[in-house]
């Protein structure tokens, strides 16, 4: 069972926080801070879990999620979506697209960690 996480997020402070939390638990965290090429990064790196922001420069997290679910090679990959857009509408969209877990910012560190562990264990 691998411990590779790909974090797609554009806020440097949030990247740093999540990296710290996961690294402390023994995860290997790679980051991608742009909406563009994010899907390609997922396909190339084949992480065990993807943490995905919604509002990204270039391309939205929803589009990236749709691409992942549409690609046979990686369609089953666990995706944890984190967003600062706290509306229920966004959760609906994400669930319709087949998100594995949906969480709103600000989040509890332990919740994120638990979710990542949970997703990889399944």
């Amino acid at each position: 069972m691998g411990r590779d996480v790909l974090l797609i997020e554009d806020e440097p402070n949030i990247i740093e926080a999540i990296r710290f939390i996961l690294a402390r638990d023994g995860w290997h965290v790679q980051t991608h801070s742009d909406g563009k090429n994010a899907f390609e990064a997922v396909r190339d790196k084949q992480p065990d879990v993807v943490i995905l922001d919604v509002m990204l420069p270039g391309r939205s997290g929803f589009e990236i999620l749709r691409d992942i679910r549409g690609d046979d090679a990686i369609s089953g990959m666990p995706v944890l979506m984190l967003t600062a857009k706290g509306q229920s509408k966004d959760r609906e969209i994400a669930e319709n697209l087949g998100v594995s877990r949906f969480m709103t910012k600000p989040f509890s560190n332990t919740d994120v960690l638990a979710a990542v562990r949970d997703l990889v264990a399944q």
């Binding site: 949030i14 926080a17 710290f20 706290g86 910012k105 600000p106 989040f107 560190n109 332990t110």
Partner: peptide
């Protein structure tokens, strides 16, 4: 929410 996320995450750390 964006700055609050950083604040909460780092303060928990």
């Amino acid at each position: 929410r964006t700055p609050m996320t950083s604040i909460r995450a780092f303060s928990e750390i």
